[in-house]
Amino acid sequence: MSKLLIYSRHFGLHGRPFSLLPDPNFVFWSAIHARAYAMLEYGLATFAPIILITGEVGAGKTTLVRHLLHTAASDLRIGLVSNAQAGRGSLLHWALLSLRQPIEGRMPYVNCFAQFEALLRAEKARGRHTVLIFDEAQNLSVSMLEELRCLSNLNSENDELLQIVLTGQPELNRLVDRPAMQQFAQRISARFHLTGMPMEAVGKYIAHRLKIVGAEQEIFSPAACELVSSASRGLPRLINQICDYALVYAFADDRTAVDADLIRQVIADRKLSSPTASAEPDE
């Protein structure tokens, strides 16, 4: 912690600007992220049964989900299921736990389903509807996705009870686009694929995060930002990783600014130019 404080003070900052943890306080509305979030809002407003947001590893999907959780309207009851996988418990158990519902021992499926449906209808009676968000949904099995499709059958023309939001990596798109998944795909009424930011947005992203923690002058040169953009492919997590290391290097060298040469050192030392460089949990 003391090293972090010295690192921050060196640049006149009051926090760490490039943490790898998803933080809605740092959300940056690039054009691509604004479109992704607009599609998420559109899906919720039009009561899309299933909403699908995919993107590269580190593209910012989880940060958008966290922003939704912090800004959701009071008429939404939201449950977040992170990293559910086949063989790690019943999907309905995951759903009930995310909605803070007690589960007594090994409840039979029919009891879980009855409890889940009762919750949805109770929320509807209060003027609210329920949203289940499955983050890292590429880990769901075909049978789990089929179970989600069946849960969406609880909706009818007169009862809009449940919406399902899936966020995941590109393989989730390939999974739901299989011919055998046609029925599931037909339930997806809002869909967006999140890519990396263009070069012109990366410098603004870096400046945005620095400003939030109190930066009053330019720390990364335009040439440094261009190199960060190229090495990261515009993916926020890789940008954060490169920039965080660059600030550590600059602090060690007693520099108050980061230039292109310093970014080259970071990329070479950390081998960050590879598309699979980051193995951290998703944004």
Rank of each mutant, 00 (worst) to 15 (best):
F47A: 04
N158H: 13
F192G: 06
P49Y: 08
R88D: 07
P222F: 03
Y7M: 15
H129K: 01
S221E: 05
F47V: 00
L235P: 04
G12P: 11
T130Q: 05
I51H: 03
I242W: 00
L92W: 06
L235Q: 08
F192K: 09
R187M: 13
H33K: 04
L172K: 08
T256H: 15
H208T: 12
S274V: 02
T195M: 08
S19E: 08
L91N: 05
E160R: 15
A180R: 10
M144C: 09
V81G: 00
I219H: 04
G55K: 00
Q115W: 06
L166V: 09
H193K: 11
L262E: 08
P102E: 15
S221V: 06
V142E: 14
I53E: 03
E283C: 10
I212E: 03
S8K: 03
E160N: 11
L238W: 02
E104D: 15
N240F: 00
I242P: 02
A260V: 12
L175N: 04
T63S: 14
L247Q: 06
S98F: 09
I212H: 10
C112R: 15
S156L: 02
L64A: 04
N111A: 15
T276M: 02
V228K: 05
I206F: 00
E157D: 14
G105L: 05
A95G: 07
Q183L: 10
L166S: 10
R187V: 12
L227C: 05
E280F: 14
P102V: 14
D23P: 10
K211M: 10
L262M: 15
Q101L: 12
G234V: 09
V165C: 10
K61P: 01
L92E: 08
E283A: 08
V258A: 04
M107Q: 12
P108H: 02
L238M: 14
S30R: 04
E146W: 03
F184T: 01
N111Y: 09
F28W: 10
N139L: 12
Y109V: 13
E218C: 01
V248T: 05
F47K: 09
Q182D: 07
L172V: 10
A207H: 10
V65L: 14
A86W: 09
N173K: 14
G60V: 04
S30P: 08
R88I: 00
G15R: 06
P102W: 15
F18Q: 10
E157N: 11
A185I: 10
Y109D: 13
H33P: 07
R264C: 08
L44E: 02
I51S: 07
I188K: 07
G127T: 04
L140W: 08
F134W: 07
R178G: 07
R106G: 06
L151F: 09
R121I: 13
G168Y: 07
A185W: 08
L162N: 00
S156N: 04
L166H: 07
Q115H: 13
R237F: 00
A34G: 12
I51C: 09
I133K: 04
Q138G: 05
G105P: 09
K211S: 15
T62W: 02
E200K: 15
P24I: 05
M181K: 02
T71F: 04
G203V: 12
G43E: 11
E104V: 13
A252S: 11
T62L: 03
E41Y: 00
